[in-house]
Nucleic acid binder design. Structure first.
Lengths: 346, 346
DNA sequence: GGGTAGCATGACAGCGCTATCAATAAAGGT
DNA sequence: ACCTTTATTGATAGCGCTGTCATGCTACCC
């Protein structure tokens, strides 16, 4: 049977409450007393019982990560989880994963249900949940604290979480393509509920505009952030009379689909076609040719979002929206535009 | 303030204990009473408080997944997590992730520490933890229940968890290479602490033996289950005087490394070289050419391991070792051996 | 030196549930 | 009808901690 707080109190010759103070880093404990308690706790190998702590303290010491179920196995989520776990570890909090179906009509109810059942002290929301204004309003009503990652939508108050200037990143990536001589640059867009899709598309358009290239609706095909969507988008683009010389996909998975279809058709990358992605997933490094993409510091994003959430749980009013940096990763999949095309298209 | 069990009891006109019985599916509750309680609970939107439940019941309703930290973001783990979550959902259990450093000398202490702190009702161990006999012995001593996934090592009693005949799968994959006409088949092995590495190597040798091909030590290079290890292994093999016409890597990540290095050198796959992997990760489908590999039902494995663990928590004595099927996924990376070589090597 | 903060500590109730065991109701056997 | 057995229900005592509030102690002020 593990030691209880009372055992430690007796061993240290103090009251339970003092032991509790020491373990919760509360003020007003003499240094000498603290040391005595810590020694006793160590000798007895004492660990506070989390359930008792939660019950008495009316807190769960738990935060939930809410994400879209089909994306459950994506490395984007995985990295966020790793960062979140690191932050929890440091604060004696636990992390709970809540893959929910976003497509279902009842995803707001599903989140409410999850909160009611597990009573986390806060939520971390990633897109598309982070962009669902109705959901956020409901959480505000219920007094549930939350942090968001890469949310686009506006809400009535200051946000907590992380943000990355995806629009600027996409514009920069597009500018990079232009600098390589490409003029016909296509975009495989992401799904609509994700704010990120709109940002990236907007950035693509910014990049074109700044280069003085007219936006051509025909060159934007809708995707779905998936490998299959990338293949479908690529097929549409390759079957055009004047196919693009560069394709910027809204994320790495769909970029991989584009590359796969290109290589299946004998299109050489980057000689005949340059491909650009977004996210810098592990896969993007492992495909051949390795993918030029935008790195998002997902692990840091998970960690920071959790840290800010925990700060705001400890002290309502604390916790901010932290801007994290992106980074262009130029790898093998991008290169100079084919000469012939460049001449033709100018 | 959420409803408490007492509120439900009053509303249903029964005692708290009866409500408790209903919510824990205990026997000896009249059908009519059960219905009344359920109606009252629904009307009050009652959810049992998990902390109170744990404290009073002396159980945490929590199982931990223990895995190697650097592999934290691997899709193998991710899939296992998804399966585990599904099983937990159904049993009103929670899942906790415990990425620990296996390489550290103190990984046994780290596991003990984790158990002491969070008090899970059981653990799910994946390799290399699942293969660490000293760890398992210690857990047995401490009376901690656990299930293992793909463990190779023998222990003194019946195991609980899942197992897959990786040796047979590797032999079959090797036989497939032989059937395609390959004679010089190399193997990029995995790291030693993983029982899986030894199994797969043994299967590779089985496959060769059955085909009457002499085992050539030179054709086995040590890897580490990583993309980089695959590249390093491939370099070693390609620089040989008589390079192999087929390379069987111990997992998909290293197989991707092999393919990447081959394509960088202008070696055509599968025309000049066939590549085989193991695991069927999402990446294996997305690389070009798509990878011929062995599918492991990781998601099912996670689910089944959790189910068996939960069964054994409910009823010590229950819970078994479930054999799960593998499946060869023949895709683009494998093809007939080059004619010239086939003739030479016969 | 008396008063008054403020720091340090303790006593004790109670968080919401389950376990135990007693009490009652229903069922069955003679 | 009575007794025994079994099914169903309830009263109550904690589980191990934290919150509240009371109390003792120290230091410092004029």
């Amino acid at each position: 049977m593990p030691a209880r707080i009372e055992d430690v109190a007796v061993a240290a010759g103090v009251s339970m409450k003092t032991v509790s103070r020491v373990f919760n880093s509360e003020p007003n404990v003499r240094e000498k007393t603290r040391a005595r308690v810590e020694a006793a706790a160590k000798a007895l190998n004492y660990r506070p019982n989390p359930s008792a702590r939660s019950l008495a303290g009316n807190r769960s010491y738990l935060i939930s990560l809410v994400y879209d179920d089909p994306a459950a196995a994506s490395s984007y989520i995985m990295e966020i989880i790793v960062g979140m776990l690191a932050a929890c570890e440091n604060s004696h909090y636990s992390a709970m994963l809540r893959p929910l179906e976003y497509s279902s009509e009842d995803h707001i109810r599903a989140v409410e249900e999850s909160v009611a059942q597990y009573r986390p002290d806060g939520l971390i929301l990633v897109p598309p949940f982070a962009d669902d204004v109705r959901l956020l309003q409901r959480l505000d009503e219920l007094g549930v604290r939350y942090a968001t990652i890469s949310a686009k939508a506006k809400i009535g108050h200051e946000r907590i979480g992380t943000i990355l200037d995806e629009r600027k990143a996409a514009a920069e990536m597009t500018a990079h393509a232009v600098a390589l001589g490409h003029r016909r640059i296509a975009h495989v867009a992401g799904p609509l509920p994700h704010g990120g899709s709109a940002w990236r598309l907007a950035g693509y358009r910014d990049g074109l505009r700044r280069a003085g290239i007219e936006y051509d609706e025909e060159l934007v095909v809708s995707g779905g952030f998936s490998f299959e969507a990338g293949i479908a988008g690529a097929r549409q683009l390759f079957d055009m009379k004047h196919p693009p010389t560069a394709i910027f996909a809204a994320n790495d998975d769909s970029a991989c689909g584009v590359m796969h279809e290109a290589l299946d058709r004998g299109i050489s990358i980057p000689r005949d076609l340059s491909v650009f992605g977004f996210d810098d997933t592990p896969t993007s490094r492992q495909v051949w040719p390795s993918l030029t993409t935008v790195r998002q510091p997902c692990r840091d994003m998970g960690r920071i979002a959790a840290e800010q959430l925990l700060a705001s749980i400890r002290d309502p009013g604390a916790g901010q929206l932290v801007r994290v940096p992106y980074e262009l990763q130029v790898r093998q999949s991008s290169g100079p535009a084919p000469l012939r095309t460049r001449a033709t298209q100018r």
